[in-house]
Simulated scan of single mutants.
Amino acid sequence: MAELRVRVNGADHLLDIPPQVSLLDALREHLGLTGTKKGCDQGACGACTVLADGERINACLALAVQYADREITTIEGIDHPIQEAFVRHDGFQCGYCTSGQICSAIGMLAEHKDGMPSAVTGEPSAEGEELTDEEIRERMSGNLCRCGAYHGIVEAIGEVAR
């Protein structure tokens, strides 16, 4: 067993868990935070996306012990304009992927603001440069939606980015 101190959604937790437990399982099974979803459990769908110190990660691929003393934010800890934009633009249908989509969108917007390049731009983004729909799609390509709500998702992100 490993003793793990982790800060989740602003609250400190002490967990005594096996070292091979994923961050996703620690959140869901040990902390009861079930908003983060287990989709593929292989890092391919993005349903488990959370923020670690503001950076988006796939919680299913991360060992919980790797995130000791870091700030983890799950959908339960988010209060962001993107949530209302998802509702306005019908950015979800069944809702299974929504928590991962929202966490990923918040991380992606921060990456863009910090000038991180994308496959579309190929160069660091200039401060104040507007995100195109094509770039939003590329930057969000790690998050899948079985229902096909991509149009609403892109519109919601575009609205918040502007």
Rank of each mutant, 00 (worst) to 15 (best):
F92R: 02
V65H: 09
E29N: 11
C48R: 04
C60D: 05
N58A: 14
C40V: 05
S22F: 12
S99R: 00
T73I: 03
T49L: 01
L109D: 08
G77R: 02
G35W: 09
A105Y: 02
A110P: 02
M108R: 15
E71K: 12
Q42K: 07
I82S: 05
K113M: 07
K113S: 04
C45H: 03
C97H: 01
K38D: 12
G39P: 10
I75G: 00
L31N: 11
R56V: 03
T34N: 11
T74S: 12
L109P: 09
G77D: 01
D53V: 05
Y67A: 03
P19L: 09
E111G: 14
D114K: 13
A110M: 03
K37Y: 00
G100S: 08
C40M: 02
I72K: 14
Q42A: 08
L31C: 14
A110L: 05
R70K: 13
N58K: 14
M108P: 08
Y96K: 06
K38Q: 11
A62D: 01
A85R: 01
H112N: 11
D90Y: 15
I72R: 15
G32L: 09
D69K: 12
G107P: 07
G115S: 08
Q42W: 11
E71P: 10
E111T: 11
T36C: 01
I57M: 03
H112M: 12
I82G: 05
D69F: 04
P18K: 15
H112Y: 08
